[in-house]
């Protein structure tokens, strides 16, 4: 019983961490029409960079996130006009064209990581990573708590930004009614660029979070991607709180599955769930 409760608790924490990795993708899919299959690959790249900073300079991953997220935001600003805008504009199905583009990017990143850091798995070990922390009577891993807090802060921060700031409202306006937005003077093109850059910036936070929890190799982005896609599809693209709720659910499934079933079953459940939901409700459960 005690083990079950603990795995439930760590499942919820895992869900928070995954919410951080998923929320940017949800934003990009729902509000910039970008189906970004490279989202977790970008996050993984940041995971490796954080690992590099930790092992060479002793910089704590929490600090590294503060450096990497703005950098990735800038990278997103640079990627939009060069690669993504031409892929989205004047295309019959921007989601399909961006998914092919980003699959290519993901392959490039995976192999670049493998070239630089070899295919061997890495583990980020910080002073707190294996420390047992007792929260409300449950004992959980320190790095899991840190990653969960990062993810939760990110999701809540984004929710606040989108609903309580003027730019956030403009972002929603463009997503809901692009023509209407242009008619009140919103430069939809700039807004899409901002959304995309935000999404890429958050990929850094989510990616470092996951890299703190799991041992990771260059191909890890793939399993992360499928999990994150499941979360986004269940939560509904563009729905920030929906992403959080669905991530908590997926975290619980992963936490319980990890405790009760062998590893192979875990991926079977994950893929099977994603497949079923995509077949039945491809545009989200809540839409």
């Amino acid at each position: 019983m005690g083990m079950l409760v603990t795995s439930l608790a760590s499942g919820l924490l895992l869900g928070c961490a995954y919410a951080g990795a998923a929320v940017g993708l949800s934003l990009a899919m729902g509000m910039a029409r970008v189906f970004n299959l490279a989202h977790t690959a970008l996050g993984l790249t940041c995971g490796y960079l954080a690992y590099f900073l930790l092992t060479t300079a002793g910089i704590d991953p929490m600090v590294a996130v503060g450096l990497l997220a703005p950098l990735m935001f800038l990278a997103g600003l640079a990627l939009w006009p060069t690669l993504f805008r031409p892929t989205v504009r004047g295309v019959a199905d921007p989601a399909l064209s961006t998914s092919i583009l980003t699959l290519g990017l993901a392959i490039v990143l995976e192999n670049a990581l493998s070239k630089v850091w070899t295919p061997n798995p890495r583990i980020m070990s910080t002073p707190y990573s294996n420390q047992a922390i007792t929260l409300f009577g449950f004992t959980v891993q320190g790095s899991l708590v840190v990653a969960a807090v990062l993810g939760l802060l990110l999701v809540l921060g984004l929710h606040w930004f989108l609903n309580r700031t003027f730019i956030g409202l403009a972002i929603q306006a463009v997503a809901q009614e692009p023509d209407g937005a242009r008619l009140v003077g919103i430069r939809a093109e700039l807004v899409s660029m901002l959304v995309f850059a935000l999404s890429v910036g958050t990929a850094a936070i989510g990616g470092v979070g996951l890299a703190m929890i799991y041992s990771f190799g260059p191909a890890s982005y793939f399993d992360w991607l499928l999990t994150v896609l499941l979360i986004v599809v269940v939560g509904g693209a563009g729905a920030i709180l929906g992403t959080l709720i669905s991530a908590l659910g997926v975290g619980l499934v992963l936490g319980l599955g990890g405790a009760l079933l062998p590893q192979a079953w875990n991926s079977l459940i994950l893929f099977g769930l994603l497949l079923t939901i995509l077949l039945l409700r491809p545009y989200g459960l809540f839409k």
Binding site: A173, Q176, G180
Partner: peptide, 11 residues
């Protein structure tokens, strides 16, 4: 003010 109003329905 366009035909069909083009409001932001979920705001």
């Amino acid at each position: 003010v366009p035909e069909g109003r083009k409001l932001f329905p979920r705001l």
